[in-house]
């Protein structure tokens, strides 16, 4: 199972399609920066999807 590029996948990590640094980040600060970079990559991928303005989120509140 492979994720789209740069994705973090909860519960069962995937093998990414794009090349990633072979060595894991060293130290908590580096890990946090790596997680932030991943978050940013995810945001950039989401930004590329053109959405009709009328598209609503897939969850609803009911009174």
């Amino acid at each position: 199972m492979l994720a789209t590029p740069g994705a973090l996948l909860a519960q069962t990590p995937t093998q990414p399609q794009t090349a990633l640094p072979q060595n894991p980040p060293q130290g908590p600060e580096a890990e946090l920066n790596a997680a932030r970079e991943q978050r940013q990559r995810n945001a950039e991928l989401l930004a590329k999807v053109a959405l009709p303005m009328a598209t609503e989120p897939a969850s609803y509140f009911k009174a």
Binding site: A3, T4, P5, G6, A7, L8, L9, A10, T14, Q38, R39, R41, N42, A43, L45, L46, K48, V49
Partner: peptide
């Protein structure tokens, strides 16, 4: 971008 969606 399924992975980016689940990740976010």
């Amino acid at each position: 971008p399924y992975g980016a969606m689940t990740g976010t």
